[in-house]
């Protein structure tokens, strides 16, 4: 499911009028929920299954808000990232800390149940003993399995290639977590505190790296990329994969790069170098 003109802050931002995340309910949100419930109940009672499904699918509106033409999100861009493993420090976790701070998730030392948007990983070639370290997050696939399997369309891909979760319609079924080949998604197992306005979160929903979409929409770089170039090895390069003149396009043209699990044919937006 692809959406264009989807403004992340409009659709999912905390404190917006339509937000219905558990931890940030407002009076208006309850009204919306009740109205939706009554509307849905009427359809469900009328003709469960196919009839209601098709009716609502046809006439139901998208929660997305259209942006002005000049700033509209389009497939002219495809945002991506190139990570040079040779420049990634063994014990450095600058990107992880920056993401955590920017987006409000916390690593409490319980990786099994924490929500983790980006993590460091070290892999070894058992034949040669060569070790490589690198960050791993949502790779923003062109053909994301999480989007394919999501029953409600909460997992979606913007036209500019960013894969997101719409917190309004995520029912917490976790099928996307089953489908993601990169274990990029995590589930909010418990109540969420200290959320950032631009990164809405809520218990019972699935979340993952947004590529700092709120910053990209303002013309800025993702927090991990900025932090890495500012205070670490500068291993992360962000840019438009569709622009042949961009630095990222020039680099992947010049040097050999790797798509993780390229055999799956997902054409990921986050690529690696020197692994």
């Amino acid at each position: 499911m692809t959406r264009n003109n989807f403004d992340f802050s409009e659709a999912g931002g905390c404190g917006t009028s339509s937000c219905s995340c558990k931890s940030q309910d407002t009076g208006k949100a309850e009204d919306v929920t009740k109205r939706d419930f009554l509307k849905g109940s009427a359809y469900a009672a009328g003709g469960i299954s196919l009839t209601s499904a098709l009716t609502l699918f046809t006439f139901g509106g998208s929660p997305a808000q259209a942006k002005e033409d000049e700033t509209a999100i389009s497939s002219k861009q495809r945002w991506g990232m190139l990570i040079d493993a040779d420049k990634c420090g063994d014990d450095c976790d600058t990107c992880v800390s920056a993401c955590s701070e920017e987006n409000g998730w916390k690593n409490t030392g319980n990786p099994l149940t924490d929500t983790i948007w980006i993590r460091k990983i070290k892999v070894k070639n058992p034949e040669t003993e060569h070790e490589t370290t690198m960050p791993l997050m949502c790779l923003h696939c062109e053909k994301p399995p999480c989007v394919d399997v999501c029953p409600t369309g909460a997992s979606f891909r913007r036209d500019d290639g960013i894969v997101l979760v719409d917190r309004h319609i995520c029912i917490g079924c976790r099928y996307c977590m089953m489908a993601c080949p990169y274990k990029a998604r995590s589930f909010a197992h418990e109540a969420v505190e200290d959320q950032k306005e631009h990164a809405p979160r809520g218990i019972g929903c699935v979340e993952s790296c947004t590529l700092c979409v709120h910053k990209i929409d303002k013309g800025e770089q993702p927090a991990c990329v900025s932090a890495c170039s500012k205070s670490a090895g500068g291993a992360m390069l962000f840019g438009d994969l569709n622009d042949p003149e961009s630095e990222i396009s020039q680099t992947i043209k010049k040097y050999a790069t790797t798509q993780m699990r390229a055999d799956l044919g997902l054409n990921v937006g986050v690529r690696y170098q020197n692994i």
């Binding site: 499911m1 558990k22 939706d36 419930f37 509307k39 849905g40 109940s41 359809y43 469900a44 209601s52 499904a53 609502l56 699918f57 139901g60 989007v147 394919d148 399997v149 999501c150 029953p151 409600t152 369309g153 309004h168 319609i169 995520c170 029912i171 917490g172 079924c173 976790r174 099928y175 589930f187 909010a188 218990i203 019972g204 929903c205 699935v206």
Partner: peptide, 21 residues
Amino acid sequence: LGRPDRLIVAMTTYNFKSIFA
């Protein structure tokens, strides 16, 4: 479900590429 209160969303908002839907 993580959000069982959103059952009505599951009943009314479909992604037809999903076998779950």
